[in-house]
Design a binder for these strands. Structure first.
Lengths: 114, 114
DNA sequence: TTTACATTTCGTTAATTAACGAAATGATGT
DNA sequence: ACATCATTTCGTTAATTAACGAAATGTAAA
């Protein structure tokens, strides 16, 4: 139960849902997401840790970058089924569409200069 | 999007999930739920209004009672699909099972004397 | 029209949460 | 070793939320 609540809490913030929908396109690093959401890196990092603790995303290091992606084989039935529902939701939402198109035209090496 | 977040927020409280699981058995009034959850009536009433505003439950008057039930024909795809997922979840959870068995042996007319 | 009682609303309090900037951490390449 | 820069952690603040009791509301029966 505790686990299920943790997943729902992770999903009940619009910035975190935007992150999940962005990750449908491709894996992303913290500062790419910060750039699209217009949030401080530290804020995005916290959101990502909440999504990871809920089992919704994975992270792996690539040099100095940390790449985040949707969790491919979620261990819990909750995250597995919810991720697959969410993939079909909000297809026409204007914010989500704008986020995804922002991502199209962005080069990590230009965007991410602290 | 706003609507989806509202649904996830409604689901991200364990007392509200317990209420939804109780309602799988039968429709219930505020004080029956208060009795099982050991919460004040006003608190339960608030939880129910959050679930209703999210489109997850319906209420209808029956004399001095207000009966709450799972929403049979949810208008949004979110609530429709989520309710059907949740129905299959937590089948063996001890808290949920205890809640449901509490409900078995309770007569609204005895329990509900403010 | 009282009385009884289920429910909701209101006001308050304690706990949780999202946000930020600054400082700490970790890894790459000079 | 040092500089660079992505990321995380920390401390703080403002906003949200769950809980309660008390008061208000609404309905049914005496």
């Amino acid at each position: 139960m505790e686990n299920l609540i943790k997943v729902f809490k992770a999903l009940s913030d619009s910035n975190r849902v935007r992150i999940l929908k962005m990750l449908e396109n491709k894996e992303l690093c913290v500062c790419e997401i910060s750039d699209v959401l217009k949030l401080a890196n530290s804020t995005v990092s916290k959101h990502l840790s909440i999504l990871r603790d809920a089992g919704l995303i994975s992270d792996f290091k690539d040099g100095k970058w940390v790449n985040y992606s949707l969790r491919v084989s979620p261990e819990s039935v909750y995250t597995k089924e919810l991720l697959s529902l969410i993939k079909n939701w909000l297809p026409d939402n204007s914010v989500i569409k704008a986020d995804k198109s922002s991502l199209g035209s962005c080069d990590r090496n230009n965007i991410c200069k602290n």
